[in-house]
Design a protein around this nucleic acid. Structure first.
Lengths: 157, 157
DNA sequence: GGCCCGGTACTCGGATACAGTTTGTCCGAGTCCAAGCGG
DNA sequence: CCGCTTGGACTCGGACAAACTGTATCCGAGTACCGGGCC
């Protein structure tokens, strides 16, 4: 089980976008320079967030990415699942119905107890991530940070 | 984020071994036939559980795998982490210290808030899995199952 | 008959190929801004 | 001087290759059992 590296990038990107003024945008190039990561690949991953409804993108000059809705309405889970997919990492393939020890279909009416326990753990993980919003993140950093972030994102030295 | 398919195999293998009489063993071949999975690959993965201290292996005829300790002392987390590794799927690479928006080292004394939230979620997942033992699994299945499992594992038609 | 010895078959264990996903890169479609031209 | 047109540059979006982890397989090392031979 391993999360892509881009997950970290996008979490930080979203947190940075949350520090912008309402309506302001940042381009993929600006974000890539801000974090020193491959611009093209970052752009590709940002599209995942757009598809996931977390970010909104506008093309053309002065365009870029911005949060699709208020920072208080975007949870860390939204971001992670948009990047990495929302499927349970544990996939029950009904192994109990195969091979020499196959169970009869009647015995498999209720889902496998192991799959259920794994799903519960996944839910615990999801709930933990869903408990934090981008607004919480912004509130946790120093009050002077947003102004600096905005300045450095737009490119002024 | 995706868990290997073998995770399901080994969870079921461990659950089956927990249904054996104390001291009894089952070989990789028997388990593979029981679940209809590639025997060689299953054997390789069972080694992970041996290295993780979950199973004990004895070579030679009548040999095979058995639980390394009492089923009540083996949690699902022990198995999953033995197979898949115990590292946090989210790896903080301190992206905040790189690029144009790099923070000063003093500001990075405390760990990144995002990494902390992700670690909390991982802990919630771990705790959920650690709450269930193999003994709990065995207790949840019908009382008649262990006898049948033993019969079908050993190969009697 | 009991004990020792050797062969055999079965077990795990690690080293070795194949495939799918993640990572990284590229170029094209669309759009807004700005300058230049005409009225 | 003002408005329209046209060019340009900048943006995202999807299509196209390399690298790494997970998947699958094989053969070798070791060990307990079983049969035969010897005392």
């Amino acid at each position: 089980m391993k999360l892509p590296v881009s997950t970290e990038w996008l979490l930080h990107c979203a947190a940075s976008l949350a520090q912008l003024e309402a309506g302001a945008t940042a381009s993929a190039t600006q974000l890539a320079q801000y974090f020193d990561v491959p611009a093209a690949y970052l752009a590709k991953q940002l599209q995942s967030l757009v598809r996931g409804g977390v970010l909104a993108a506008t093309t053309g000059p002065r365009g870029g990415f911005r949060l699709a809705r208020d920072a208080a309405r975007i949870t860390l889970l939204d971001i992670v699942e948009a990047v990495d997919g929302a499927s349970d990492p544990y996939e029950c393939r009904e192994i109990r119905q195969r091979g020499r020890g196959a169970l009869s279909p009647e015995e498999c009416r209720s889902p496998c107890i192991l799959a259920r326990k794994m799903a519960e753990a996944h839910d615990a993980w999801r709930q933990s991530l869903a408990a934090t919003t981008l607004a919480d993140i912004v509130a946790a950093i120093p009050a002077s940070a947003p102004a600096r972030t905005r300045a450095r994102l737009t490119g002024a030295p």
